[in-house]
């Protein structure tokens, strides 16, 4: 995973609620492998007409937001399917941070596994940021993960993050390798669990 320490970049406002993963990346792109990249798939049905020409009214097609690396969105962002492609699309397009009042649980987990920092932020603050971005297009947002701070113009605030996820992000660590360091603990549990619930431990022998 690409480490995340701090980031500063142009922010784009997309203040809609319930932006779902089908909208972030339509299902027809899910055949691709991770190596193929998903930059063009991001918000594809909003960004392009059916004939492939860019739509004029979508925020990411309007300079300077076309170079945005921070997305500011409405509540329940990333609801719907568990497809991690939604996170890959945002990351491959160039987004490093998404700020929203709330995130769907699965999307939230997927983001932090891929170096995309999601920052739950009170609705009133999100509204304030969106007003700033609309009034002054091209405003940059600065995020410092270690200090857990966000700065947008005159506004600054701190945010919460799970300390383990924070460390993984800062160091770019893989959780799987970390878990396997506790393999003997898992094996001990597994053996006891299997003895007390043999019907779960051996589905093929029943």
């Amino acid at each position: 995973m690409k480490p995340f320490k701090s980031h500063r970049g142009i922010a784009a406002p997309l203040p809609k609620s319930n932006i779902n993963t089908d909208l972030i990346v339509p299902a027809r792109y899910l055949l691709r492998t991770r190596k193929d990249g998903f930059a063009d798939a991001l918000f594809s049905d909003l960004r392009y007409e059916v004939d492939g020409t860019p739509t004029s009214d979508f925020v990411l097609n309007q300079p300077p937001f076309d170079t945005a690396t921070v997305l500011v969105a409405g509540d329940n962002f990333g609801c719907g399917s568990s497809r991690e492609h939604a996170v890959w699309s945002l990351a491959d397009y160039g987004f490093r941070v998404v700020i929203a009042p709330s995130f769907a649980d699965i999307f939230h987990g997927n983001s932090l596994q891929n170096g995309l920092l999601v920052i739950p932020t009170p609705q009133a603050t999100v509204d304030q940021i969106c007003s700033t971005l609309t009034a002054n297009p091209g405003t940059e947002i600065a995020v410092d993960l270690d200090a857990q701070t966000v700065v947008c113009g005159n506004l600054s605030y701190t945010f919460e993050i799970d300390p383990y996820r924070k460390e993984c992000l800062l160091k770019g660590l893989s959780e799987t390798a970390d878990t396997l360091r506790s393999l003997s603990t898992i094996e001990t549990f597994e053996s006891q669990h299997g003895q007390s619930r043999p019907w779960l431990a051996a589905p093929h022998q029943s």
Binding site: S81, S82, R83, E84, V87, I106, G109, N110, Q113, N114, E175, T176, T179, L180, L183, I186, E190
Partner: peptide
């Protein structure tokens, strides 16, 4: 519950 691709990799490798 549903999980993403990174978590699938974790479950495949660790069963946890």
């Amino acid at each position: 519950f549903g999980i993403g691709a990174s978590e699938i990799a974790h479950v495949l490798a660790t069963q946890t």
